[in-house]
């Protein structure tokens, strides 16, 4: 049974696209058939983070408007064959997305894939509401920082009122993904800790992704962090989160890249 997952946050720059790519790749390497849809029409970036920017021919708008077949627009990942991308249009704007067209495309993708992952644009406008419209599951990406937490609270409200499930009186299954977490700073009382964020937003925790230079390194290379360096701390955190999405019960840990004294002295330059 296919699941439609929306990755959303309200605030921009918190890690929606990074998380979409990393979780999609993690689910696909675990044997699931996955498609990632970029809903950020006009400002697409998932193609770039996935390293597929030169392979885009048709996009979501072409398919929604019936100018291209779904099979023509889907880009199959060269590293993980079970991973697919449906890119956004870079030249059109979000008004070109019709509600019926999106519903039709999502329904068609449900037939072919185990996971349909919608990468939401920032904000609460049309692109974001269409991305969450058909979701069964939602991941709210939050940084441990006041403006991100406030925006996440707003998105949780929208997930409970503006989605198809909510309108039918059902619930979208919501998960919190805390990204760019710095355990040392939280420990010193300089950053909201995990318990604070959980208490304020009160939705279940899917994972804690530590702040790491590995994320930037992976996006520089156009590879999800879970493929680029699967043993790195953020990748391990994403793999755990993906397992939890598949229903596995794992202990919540915050993976760390922290090295010993030797590593601290020599590791960074060699890395």
């Amino acid at each position: 049974m296919a699941k439609v997952l929306v990755v959303t946050s309200g605030k921009g720059g918190v890690g929606k696209t990074t998380s979409t790519a990393a979780l999609g790749a993690a689910l696909a390497t675990a044997g699931k058939n996955v498609v990632l849809i970029d809903f950020d029409v006009g400002l697409r970036n998932l193609d770039l983070v996935m390293g597929a920017e030169r392979r885009v021919v048709y996009d979501l708008i072409n398919v929604v408007q019936g100018d291209a077949k779904l099979a023509q627009a889907l880009i199959r990942d060269k590293r993980v064959p079970a991973l697919h991308l449906l890119p956004a249009s870079q030249t059109r704007d979000k008004d070109a997305l019709s509600e019926e067209g999106v519903a039709r495309v999502i329904a068609e993708l449900r037939e072919k894939f185990d996971w349909v992952i919608c990468d939401s644009p920032a904000g609460i406008e049309r692109g974001a509401t269409l991305a969450m419209r058909h979701a069964d599951v939602a991941i709210v990406v939050t940084n441990p920082e006041v403006s991100s937490v406030r925006d996440s609270d707003r998105m949780i409200g929208l997930l409970d009122s503006k989605t198809e499930k909510a309108e039918k009186g059902e619930r979208v299954e919501k998960h919190l993904l805390i990204t760019r977490f710095d355990a040392a700073r939280a420990g010193r009382g300089e950053m909201l800790n995990v318990e604070d964020v959980l208490e304020i937003l009160s939705i279940p925790l899917l994972g804690i992704i530590p702040e790491s230079f590995e994320v930037l390194r992976a996006s520089n290379l156009g590879s999800p962090v879970t493929l680029n360096n699967p043993m790195s701390a953020p990748a391990r955190a994403y793999f755990d989160a993906a397992k939890r999405l598949n229903g596995e019960a794992l202990d919540m840990t915050i993976p760390s890249d922290r090295k010993g004294l030797f590593g601290k002295l020599f590791g960074r330059r060699a890395a």
């Binding site: 006041v146 937490v149 010193r188 009382g189 300089e190 800790n193 604070d196 304020i200």
Partner: peptide
């Protein structure tokens, strides 16, 4: 060094 996180939490709540 002032602990700013508790202030953030209270303001948000």
């Amino acid at each position: 060094a002032p602990h700013t996180a508790p202030v953030a939490r209270e303001r948000l709540q």
